[in-house]
Computed example of a mutant assay.
Amino acid sequence: MRIGVVSDTHDRQEAVAEAVRLLLEQEVELILHCGDIESPETVRAFKPIPTHFVFGNWDKDKVRLAAAIKDAGGTHYDSFGALTLADKRVAWVHSHERHQLRQLENADFFDYVFYGHTHVREQHRTGRTLVANPGALFRANPKTCIVLDLATGEIKPIIIPTKPQGGHAATAHAASAALDDGTGSIVMPPSVLPDAPAPPPASS
């Protein structure tokens, strides 16, 4: 079973639509959203994949968000969620209330704990628990989400292409080809890196 994990979408609907498209390509069966959704319009973009949401500190209108999540066929929790998926115990939280993340991480109960809020992708292990932040779709460079294969334990980062001013988005193939060096850092394949400028002509 493969699941997607996203966070801090902050109403960036183009980035969300591209993330959902790439996660569909990865054949994920559901998505966990670690909070800071902001608007019902963003929720609707997740309709193609069953999505489980927790609320973050920027999710002010929880009543409208909860209604939109229900209409989209998703599930909402309050400050944190927990599920058993493929015999693995999984929890997720926004983490603006830091004590919640610490409690989940140090409970020695969950196989995976996901969190957001910092807009920085990272992963580490505390005892039996793998703790990971998928990154963000706003105020992050690059913008990322992750795919977890629950059968193998592999976590794959997905880079979301963005459109530079006057330019075109990077290809989805290049985005999904991002590699993880095992330390939580994202390693871009050569095909994604910009071409080096040509050297100046030799002076005569």
Results as ranks from 00 to 15, higher is better:
E105R: 14
R89A: 03
R139Y: 01
P142N: 11
F53L: 09
H124M: 06
C34L: 07
Q13M: 04
L130F: 14
H168E: 14
S39Q: 15
E25C: 03
E25T: 09
H119C: 12
R121E: 02
V43A: 05
S185Y: 11
K60T: 03
R102I: 13
L130S: 10
G74K: 05
G167V: 08
A67Q: 08
M1C: 07
V131H: 00
F114N: 09
D71H: 04
G116R: 07
F109K: 12
K163T: 08
I158Q: 13
A136K: 01
D195M: 11
A91W: 03
G35H: 05
D61C: 13
D108V: 04
P199Y: 07
S203F: 13
R121F: 04
D11Q: 02
H96C: 01
L101D: 10
F110G: 01
G116W: 04
P134T: 00
P134W: 09
A202E: 15
K62R: 10
T126Q: 12
C145V: 12
C145N: 05
S191P: 13
D61S: 14
K163I: 03
Y115H: 12
D87K: 14
G4W: 07
W92F: 06
W58Q: 10
G73C: 15
G74P: 07
L137I: 03
T9S: 11
R98H: 04
F110I: 06
T126R: 14
V90E: 14
R98K: 12
H96W: 15
H33T: 02
T118K: 15
K143R: 09
D87W: 10
I37L: 11
Q100F: 01
A202Q: 15
K60D: 06
F109W: 11
L22R: 12
K47Y: 14
D11A: 02
F138L: 07
K62E: 05
H96T: 13
A151I: 04
A170E: 05
V93G: 01
A140C: 12
L104Q: 00
W58Y: 11
V113K: 06
P40W: 02
P190K: 11
F55H: 12
D181W: 01
I158W: 10
L30C: 15
H10D: 11
F110N: 07
P197F: 11
A67E: 03
L23W: 00
D195T: 01
L104N: 08
F55K: 13
E29Y: 02
T42G: 03
Y115T: 02
A15E: 06
G4C: 12
R139V: 06
P40C: 10
T84P: 08
G184M: 09
H124I: 05
D87C: 14
G81T: 11
H117A: 04
S79I: 06
A19Y: 14
G167E: 09
D78V: 00
P200H: 03
E154I: 15
S79G: 14
G81W: 09
P161D: 09
P194T: 05
S191Y: 04
G135M: 03
R121W: 05
I160M: 01
V28R: 10
G73V: 11
G167H: 05
I31H: 05
V63A: 15
L23E: 04
S191G: 07
M1F: 08
D71Q: 07
L24Q: 12
A174D: 10
E25G: 06
A170Y: 07
